[in-house]
Design a protein around this nucleic acid. Structure first.
Lengths: 160, 160
DNA sequence: TTGAATACCATAAAATCCCATGCTATCCCG
DNA sequence: CGGGATAGCATGGGATTTTATGGTATTCAA
């Protein structure tokens, strides 16, 4: 699972260290590296290991061949994504167009989001994070762990 | 289940012993350590084992992919949380930013809350606990309603 | 041959491992 | 019941390894 956030530097050759925790996660897909693509949600990158891509593949296989969403999916993820392998010390070289798309220059922030991660310009991310925190607080009631929760009155988590 | 509370010391390197009871609980997720994140409810930390995070993962997986709240949760839970593994004697190293967020210096109090736990500055927790007790006393008449199931339980109706 | 991409080496800082010690609760046996 | 042995726990410090990052060499192709 991709967790935590870390900000690392891009060097003159466009190389950047992938956080060690993330490297440990992607080692399962059989490919020593990550996959990155420009996000359809905004000016940042999304990524994961090969295992994630295989999950998406399986998802798409189950969609109707002429479903619009399917084609959008195929185009926006598979067609746009790059396979970047680690060098000896766990860095990848960021293709120029991806760096440009996400506005990455000196540094980049890796954000762990469970199954996948995102790569942001550090400054742009800050405001995102603040907004997310606010919204999470306002919607906290939706995070109840109903699956394994014992039978109890519908009051909120006993945050005492 | 995380139960009871314990106060342990932070050493010069930022290490702190996780209460032995808690260590026994988290061993299930396959990862020998805990996960901690800054609470959105106040200046303290929340934590649990990997199993708890997997529960959240499952919950989020079932939300609409385009739901704004979903992204907010991903960002405020996965992105903010840290995976801290035990050393040989059951300690973890508290990242500086987390310690700072919760105002932890010499000591920290672990509070078991069943499925998860919290980590507080001992002083803050004390005053918070006092306030909670006071509020509980002032509102004790409301407590009668809390334990009750929404559709009335067979045992607790006075049945005049 | 020149440029770009890739592999290899070096280093400082940070995280991790490993061993030692005092304390406390528990057990066991007289 | 008592007192010593024992095991588990919290804590301290030094040694070792990993990580992030910079630079240099080498390969490959145009």
């Amino acid at each position: 699972m991709f967790l935590a956030t870390a900000t690392n530097s891009l060097d003159a050759k466009g190389r950047i260290s992938v956080p060690a925790d993330f490297r440990a996660v992607v080692s399962d897909g059989g490919f020593e590296g990550i996959v990155l693509w420009p996000s359809v949600h905004g000016g940042f990158l999304e990524g994961g290991g090969m295992a994630l891509l295989q999950d998406y593949q399986r998802l798409i296989d189950n969609m109707d061949p002429y479903d619009d969403a399917r084609m959008a999916f195929e185009r926006s993820i598979f067609a746009e994504s790059r396979r970047l392998s680690f060098d000896g010390t766990g860095r990848v070289t960021l293709p120029k167009d991806l760096a440009e798309y996400a506005g990455l220059e000196k540094q980049a922030t890796f954000i762990g989001l469970g199954r996948r991660f995102e790569v942001w310009n550090p400054d742009s991310y800050q405001s995102q994070a603040d907004a997310a925190r606010l919204m999470a607080r306002e919607n906290k009631h939706r995070l109840r762990l109903v699956g394994r929760a014992p039978l109890r009155a519908p009051s909120d988590e006993p945050r005492s």
